[in-house]
């Protein structure tokens, strides 16, 4: 799907969020001079194309008690990695799961899964669940906890193109 100028205006206008009102799409329409039905149709097309994953609420997982998280990393046999990655990504406590290249000899791990829990003990227990799913394909693993946020600017919309 090729974004047109109106799609870009719509995404730019809603990048920081939608208004919390009874009819948010109508209100966005008034910002941009578009009918409500067109705002809805454009979001539906963007969602069908995978550019918008979904429109939803993002809870602050710290605020609701999920204060522990760790980047678990796994060295999984290449031939099994895609199938197993899909199973790990489907777990409710895994927020991001990616297959990435190793960087040998410093870094033998090819599967990354961010694990969330209410405590570090809970994260460790969930890590054991992941290990059990990986089974014999698993060669080595580690978990990296973040100790400091050094920068967080969020994602900027790439304009033009």
């Amino acid at each position: 799907m090729k974004l047109d100028a109106t799609d870009r205006r719509l995404l730019a206008a809603t990048a920081s969020g939608l208004p919390l009102t009874l009819r948010p799409f109508a209100e966005v329409g008034t910002w941009l001079g578009l009918p409500e039905a067109e705002v809805i149709a454009r979001f539906a097309a963007l969602q069908a194309a995978g550019i918008v994953r979904r429109i939803a609420v993002a809870p602050n997982h710290y605020a609701v008690g999920m204060v522990a998280n760790g980047m678990s990393v796994w060295d999984v046999a290449d031939e099994a990695a895609e199938d197993l990655g899909a199973r790990i990504g489907a777990l409710g406590f895994v927020s991001h799961c990616y297959l990435r290249p190793r960087s040998l000899p410093d870094w033998p791990y090819n599967l990354f899964a961010m694990i969330h829990g209410t405590s570090r003990d809970e994260v460790e227990a969930k890590r054991q669940q992941v290990a059990a799913i990986l089974g014999p394909a698993l060669r080595a693993s580690d978990i990296l906890y973040s100790t400091r946020i050094l920068k967080k600017t969020g994602m900027r919309l790439v304009e033009g193109g």
């Binding site: 974004l3 995404l11 809603t14 990048a15 920081s16 969020g17 939608l18 919390l20 979001f43 963007l46 194309a49 995978g50 550019i51 918008v52 994953r53 979904r54 429109i55 939803a56 609420v57 993002a58 809870p59 602050n60 605020a63 609701v64 994602m155 919309l157 790439v158």
Partner: peptide
Amino acid sequence: GAITRFGPFLDAAAM
């Protein structure tokens, strides 16, 4: 502060 955001979640690479 229980919600950080309400809105579209974009696939950055698709953009």
